[in-house]
């Protein structure tokens, strides 16, 4: 079995990187290959990375409100490029109302600060498996 590949990054000038690093390390411990792109990402940059790196899932760590604007841009750009890669968001700033909003727009999963790591791993694993079936 080929390991799951997941991109982990952050949008714009959102710079609180600690969560992204900790999650990356946990995902790697769970056997995934994390393509860590870190801070200062834009939807354009993420889409071209997704193509080159052929990741199964896109994970964005959110600690400022920038994700509210960038996420729909990313979803649109993925669709324009015929990419079906699922997008998941994680971070403490995402409230319950934001979560349903994001899911409504097409985000595949939202993880809050109290989501246990096992659940995050399970969800990402399921998303990656779904994607492989589609192809």
């Amino acid at each position: 079995m080929q390991p799951i590949r997941i991109l982990v990054g952050m949008f714009g000038v959102d710079q609180h990187e600690v969560g992204a690093l900790a999650v990356s390390s946990a995902l790697s411990d769970a056997g995934m290959e994390v393509v860590y792109v870190g801070r200062f990402q834009t939807p354009e940059r993420i889409v071209s990375t997704v193509q080159d790196e052929d990741v199964d899932v896109i994970g964005i760590s959110c600690h400022s409100w920038e994700y509210i604007e960038y996420t729909p841009e990313l979803l649109r750009l993925l669709a324009e490029n015929d990419l079906t890669t699922p997008v998941v968001l994680g971070g403490s700033v995402i409230t319950a109302a934001d979560t349903s909003d994001m899911i409504g727009q097409g985000v595949a999963g939202v993880f809050g600060p109290s989501t246990p790591m096992e659940l995050i791993i399970d969800d990402i694993t399921a998303l990656a498996a779904g994607r492989n079936l589609r192809e």
């Binding site: 949008f11 714009g12 000038v13 959102d14 710079q15 200062f40 834009t42 400022s64 409100w65 920038e66 509210i68 604007e69 960038y70």
Partner: peptide
Amino acid sequence: GPTQSMLDADHPLCRHS
């Protein structure tokens, strides 16, 4: 955020912050 990173408000990467 932009100010802390020494980026001006009209820098493209700061458009949502």
